[in-house]
């Protein structure tokens, strides 16, 4: 009894520490969600998928008017056409995805344990192309945003459910995304969290800052500022440049891990993309 008791205690401690480590992302998410529910008590949790419109009644009215004839409709149509148009070898995007690519937005981003990295929807779209001997598309706007928008549209109402598998590399990817989110960078010395946690609901110049929870749900978005539809990584890039930091490459490791973390923070909310934003 006495001989194996220390070994048993050590094993229990190791198992306990391991469970604590794996529990951390869920602790983060619950704290993240509670922060916004407390800060914006008039906003139902499910409404945070509408971003700034969930906390700003005036811009919400304008947005609802826009949604009557949404400016992303043309992109949706071209996205559907591109999605269905066969590659030179006769195959289509649908051949690369589960369920023919319809209603699968909620499967992304995920951590691929074979590759050891986060896979986003846009990455999967371009990998589908290269697997079929087609040139990859540019990452931030144009056809890839249109295809992604169409795929998101077919997935409206599906629940964000990012899983962090029991793989230390997956947890490391999550932690790297989390670190990125909370780290100040650029000449203006801002972190993502400065604007979208502490600053959410406040103003930068004339713009009201949106809450982070639900941020990923409505991408790709048609931004009036862009006059076009663009991807989430285009927005990440723009945010970094606005604080005068050098932007990272779209679909590079940094932004994919950031997307992984941010999506996990919105687990339980619904996908409602594509959206329209100022």
């Amino acid at each position: 009894m006495k001989r194996w008791l220390p070994s048993l205690l050590i094993a229990m401690a190791v198992a306990g520490a391991s469970m604590m480590t794996l529990a951390a992302p869920e602790d983060d998410r619950v704290a993240f969600e509670n922060y916004f529910l407390t800060k914006f008590p008039d906003t139902p949790k499910s409404d945070f998928v509408n971003g700034i419109y969930s906390i700003d009644p005036i811009s919400r009215d304008q947005w609802l008017d826009l949604e009557e004839f949404p400016p992303y409709e043309l992109a949706l149509e071209s996205g559907e056409t591109l999605f269905e148009t066969p590659f030179a070898n006769g195959k289509t995007y649908g051949d690369c995805f589960d369920n023919g690519g319809i209603g699968v937005r909620q499967n992304y981003p995920y951590f691929d344990t074979e590759r050891g990295e986060v896979v986003t929807l846009e990455l999967a779209i371009n990998e589908c192309r290269t697997a079929n001997d087609e040139k990859p598309l540019k990452w931030k706007s144009g056809p890839i945003a249109a295809i992604s928008a169409y795929m998101a549209f077919t997935s409206r109402g599906q629940t964000i459910n990012v899983v962090i598998p029991d793989d230390s590399r997956a947890l490391a990817a999550y932690e790297e995304g989390k670190k990125f989110y909370y780290t100040k960078r650029g000449q203006l010395n801002f972190s993502c969290s400065d604007c979208h946690i502490g600053g959410s609901g406040g103003y930068i110049r004339t713009e009201k800052l949106s809450p982070s929870i639900g941020h990923v749900s409505h991408f790709p978005v048609y931004r009036l500022k862009w006059g076009a539809i663009g991807t989430l990584h285009r927005r990440f890039s723009g945010c970094n440049q606005q604080v005068r930091a050098k932007a990272f490459k779209a679909q590079g490791r940094e932004y994919r891990n950031l997307e992984y973390f941010l999506s996990y923070m919105s687990n339980g909310l619904e996908f409602n993309g594509p959206g329209v934003r100022r």
Binding site: D28, A31, Y35, K178, K179, Y182, T183, S191, S193, I197
Partner: peptide
Amino acid sequence: AAINQAEREARLWEGRVVR
């Protein structure tokens, strides 16, 4: 300044995590 920022943030970012 950017290098100083990186060194500073390596210590400080965790303090901003919502808990």
